[in-house]
Amino acid sequence: MKDVAARAGVGLKTVSRVVNGEPGVTPDTERKVQEAIDALGFRRNDSARVLRKGRTSSVGLVLEDLADPFYGPLSRAVEEVARAHGALLINGSSAEDPDREQELVLALCARRVDGLIVIPAGDDHRYLEPEIKAGIATVFVDRPAGGISADVVLSDSFGGARDGVAHLIAHGHRRIGFIGDQPRIHTAQERLRGYRTAMEDAGLPVDERWISLGSTEPGRVGPVVEKLLTGPEPVTALFAGNNRVTVTAVRMLARRETPVALVGFDDIELADLLGITVIAQDAAALGRTAAERLFRRLDGVADEPARVELATRLLTRGSGEVPPAPGTR
């Protein structure tokens, strides 16, 4: 830094302000310092900075599955907010395994990340209490923490599912199948609750055979779709509990001669071209809101943990507007 200061003709403090993005430097001086940095090939010593400030300028993001398209915009939004705060984002996947989630979270803590954003796989997060007390800011996304009080940013899974099923009911359907994720998952529970509420509000009975919760793998979902659509009183419409269920349902319905109404929770790629009606979440807003809340905590805001719930949108594109076949109501 002394060499940079000498070449730019400024003091060490001025160089430090430019390097660390601090205010108080004129544009002309900042340009001179940056030119000196480029000419000398100067690189900031983050290790020394950590020792001096007690912060690593890094945050961890624990996702369910890095390959799931839903998490792409969410992760990108978190990264953009982190970058704006001069922080590095480190992410990993829990693969929906609570033990793996805990292992990954604690590994990030051991590497002294300043904060964590977690999409929970498990329902007991008391293992994080010592880390939070030690100063690691933590925000949960998509699902609340279990056993501890912490900030959480959610989509309105209940309201979105209720609106999607009500849309099918409004188009004449009375027998509606629900295919969801694992029953222990918060979002699966909330979307099933929304389904039941919509049916109840319309005065419609629910046959428990119309409901199927479990793995979202095609090997399970495919046979469930086939079973719901066959038999003496098949369902006339399907509500898919997340994007992976929707994709398999679309493939199964494409094999049928008679159209079947479908509404999916989560938008999917090409859904607009395929005419798939969905309840859309704003994954980028989830990530951005969670990251902004995390950095508020890191800046010293110490208010009570908050629950932030973002609205969903019904996007009508054709599949949810298919009426029941004659004689099937």
Rank of each mutant, 00 (worst) to 15 (best):
T246E: 03
N242V: 12
T258Y: 01
R251P: 03
L228N: 01
T248E: 15
V263Y: 06
E233I: 00
A254T: 02
V245F: 13
M252L: 14
T246F: 08
L253D: 00
T230D: 03
T248A: 06
V235N: 02
G231F: 00
V260Q: 03
V247Y: 10
E257V: 12
L262I: 04
L273I: 12
T248R: 12
L274A: 15
R251T: 13
T248W: 03
P259H: 03
L228Q: 05
V263E: 08
E257S: 13
V250T: 12
T248C: 10
L253I: 07
D272M: 06
A261F: 09
G231L: 00
V245L: 05
V235R: 05
A249M: 11
T230N: 07
E269Y: 13
L228W: 00
D272L: 10
A249L: 09
T258W: 05
L262D: 06
D266K: 13
R244I: 09
G241S: 12
R244P: 12
L228D: 02
L229I: 02
L273C: 11
N242G: 13
L273H: 14
L273R: 15
V235W: 01
A240V: 06
T246D: 05
T236Q: 00
V250P: 04
R256T: 00
T230I: 00
F265D: 09
R256I: 03
V263C: 07
P232Q: 13
P259E: 06
V235F: 05
T236S: 11
N243L: 12
L274Q: 10
V247W: 11
D272F: 08
T248I: 11
R255I: 01
L228C: 05
M252Y: 02
V263H: 04
F239S: 05
A237N: 04
T236K: 01
T236R: 02
R256M: 05
L273A: 15
E269P: 03
L270V: 15
I268G: 13
T246R: 05
L238G: 03
T248Y: 04
A237H: 02
A261Y: 04
A240M: 10
N243F: 11
R255Y: 04
T230K: 07
